[in-house]
């Protein structure tokens, strides 16, 4: 009896999830295969003829290979930001968890503030212009680091709390200096949470639209999210190309999802169990 009910429930869940979640994705893929006239109909139909390759070529070569440049920019932005972010956040998380001083309260307050307060965009632009980094990729890297630090520090700090302090002390007795303790003992032990950090923050920064919109104006340093946004007005009549673009920029998160699903979920659910 319960078995039959369970089957019904499963079937219902699968059908429902299919309609709600799979249809939109299938729609994107189908559109990417269509030609311009068929795409114009915006319907959920089987493509007449195979136009995926020509669509990709057209999207990529549009506006002087802009999408390719954007992919390179997004990759540089993501890799550089996440690399520095991971190291800096781990350093802060480590000392913050280990060393109790009267500044800890202030630091924790600033971290929580960073999670809550929306960045003040125009003053940031004013500041970036002041130091000559506005519209530059490395300026954007620093901004992404600044905005992502609080979450990464919290992830690290929670994990470092699970590494016994005796581990550091054993290393100190063995003759390790502070940098040895951090780089040879603690950082290797942080590997699981580092992977989580890398994956979660890579996806977030790669998908970031708002901040590049403000801080990376112009085409030279556009990221993939910006090109998609720009194409939206340009390809008003070529839905096949617009959806090819969407399909292309969904590939990196898809790959990450396939390989690192567990770590992403671990990172995003940190804190769900214990306040």
């Amino acid at each position: 009896m319960t078995l039959i009910r369970r089957y019904w429930l499963s079937a219902l869940a699968i059908i429902f999830s299919g309609i709600v979640f799979l249809v939109p994705f299938s729609f994107i893929i189908l559109m990417a295969f269509k030609d311009r006239t068929q795409a114009q109909l915006l319907d959920f139909s089987w493509p007449q003829g195979m136009h995926l390759w020509s669509n990709i070529v057209e999207v990529v070569t549009t506006r002087n290979w802009m999408l390719l440049t954007a992919f390179i920019n997004s990759t540089i932005l993501t890799v550089a930001s996440v690399t520095l972010l991971v190291i800096f956040a781990a350093m802060v998380g480590f000392v913050l968890q280990r060393r109790k001083t009267r500044f800890n309260g202030l630091i924790e307050f600033l971290i929580l503030a960073g999670l809550m307060i929306p960045p003040a965009v125009v003053p940031t632009i004013w500041l970036l212009q002041g130091i000559g980094l506005f519209g530059k990729l490395h300026g954007m890297v620093l901004v992404e680091i600044a905005y992502s630090l609080p979450f990464s520090i919290l992830l690290y700090r929670a994990f470092i709390a699970t590494i016994p302090r005796e581990m550091d002390e054993a290393a100190i007795i063995d003759g390790a200096r502070p940098l040895d303790v951090f780089f040879r003992i603690v950082l290797p032990l942080l590997w699981p949470v580092t992977v989580t950090n890398i994956v979660v923050q890579s996806v977030a920064i790669f998908n970031d639209f708002t901040n590049p919109l403000y801080y990376l104006p112009g085409n030279a340093n556009a990221t993939v999210q910006l090109t998609l946004y720009n194409f939206q007005s340009q390809f008003q009549t070529s839905y096949n190309l617009l959806f090819t673009n969407i399909a292309l920029i969904t590939i990196p998160p898809l790959i990450v999802f396939l390989f690192f699903n567990r770590q992403i979920v671990a990172g995003m659910t940190a804190g769900a169990v214990k306040g």
Binding site: L84, I87, F88, A89, M91, V92, F94, V95, L96, R98, R99, I107, L110, G114, I117, P119, A120, V121, V122, P123, T124, W126, L127, L128, L142, V143, I145, A146, Y147, L149, I153, D168, I172, P178, V181, F182
Partner: peptide, 29 residues
């Protein structure tokens, strides 16, 4: 201390300059 305070420095500079400073400046502007 085996936990040197300068470990805060890189993060503090970036965060202070690009997040805290603009936030404070926004109160004036």
């Amino acid at each position: 201390s085996p936990y040197p305070a300068w470990f805060f420095l890189p993060a503090a500079i970036i965060y202070g300059l690009l997040f805290l400073l603009p936030t404070l400046a926004s109160l004036y502007f």
